[in-house]
């Protein structure tokens, strides 16, 4: 059964990567996400937009079960990654997160060298056969993170010594190094200056070649610039989901239009 699916995926690259059905999230007594259905495509950048507190980050964190680390959080409904329920009992969240990587709002490099930051994931997941292999993985990840040229001479320097934009690209490279299939990004540019933001946005566009990217952003312009698909969240509901162009030019829902035009948010 598994083999069949793999074959199918290989053929149809633009197939659905993640499919969520009837997802409900509760924080204690708070109903944070209400009945969300969404299909996230492979090799596409999907943007989640909406006013703050609308649940877009919460939903994002469901996709690689980061919510498991919060005691009071409870998730209902189905989220399928390649047709497999990620909340199934048999699924080890550790293994899931290797497939679904994540980049956070604030750059959070480990207090280690740049090299060790990147090598951390490959090491814990046993991706490298030997030192040379690991070197190769690190270089590849740093190149994909569009930061190789800036750091190749100081791989032993601490990652915390880089500038904010460099740190965030380092974190993206770190996430890429484990060869995930999906990359989740939680407002990756909110702590960065405009120039660094531009660099990261260019990087996201390049990443689309290899990954399915889901990005949460509070900036509509950013969503318009980088994404092909956009989902609009409001008060825990997924209000509208479609091609980015369509959402921004011809929203179907009144609330989406109000948000796009700046009347709510």
């Amino acid at each position: 059964m598994n083999d069949m699916r793999i074959v199918k995926r290989d053929v149809d690259m633009n197939d659905t990567k993640i499919s969520a059905k009837g997802v409900q999230v509760f924080y204690g007594d708070t109903h944070a996400i209400k009945d969300v259905d969404v299909e996230i495509k492979d090799k596409t950048v999907t943007a989640f937009i909406g006013p703050s507190g609308c649940g877009k980050s919460t939903f994002l964190r469901c996709l690689n079960r980061m919510n498991d680390t919060i005691d009071i959080c409870r998730v209902e409904g189905n989220i399928l990654l390649d047709g497999e329920d990620i909340y199934d009992k048999r699924v080890d969240p550790v293994q899931l997160r290797a497939k679904v990587g994540m980049v956070f709002q604030r750059p959070n490099p480990f207090p280690k060298s740049i090299y060790d930051n990147i090598a951390y994931g490959p090491r814990i997941h046993g991706l490298a056969k030997n030192k040379a292999d690991l070197d190769e993985i690190v270089e590849k990840a740093l190149r994909r993170g569009a930061i190789w040229d800036e750091v190749k001479d100081r791989l032993d320097a601490p990652g915390t010594g880089l500038s904010g934009g460099q740190q965030q690209r380092l974190c993206i490279a770190r996430a890429v190094a484990t060869e995930p299939e999906v990359l989740l990004m939680d407002e990756p540019c909110s702590a960065l200056d405009p120039i660094a933001t531009l660099q990261v946005e260019e990087l996201i566009d390049e990443l689309r070649e290899n990954f399915s990217v889901v990005i949460v952003t509070h900036s509509m312009q950013q969503a318009a610039r980088v994404s092909q698909k956009t989902a609009f969240f409001h008060l825990g509901n997924l209000v509208e989901y479609g091609d980015t162009e369509q959402i921004f030019t011809n929203p179907q829902d009144e609330r989406t239009e109000s948000y796009i035009t700046g009347r709510i948010g």
Binding site: N2, E84, I86, V91, D92, R123, H125, G126, K129
Partner: peptide, 21 residues
Amino acid sequence: MSDFTADNSPAAGKGSSLFKE
């Protein structure tokens, strides 16, 4: 923990099932 494992079975190569630990 060693960096490089002898059996070298990657955790989750592309396409492997999540259900199989």
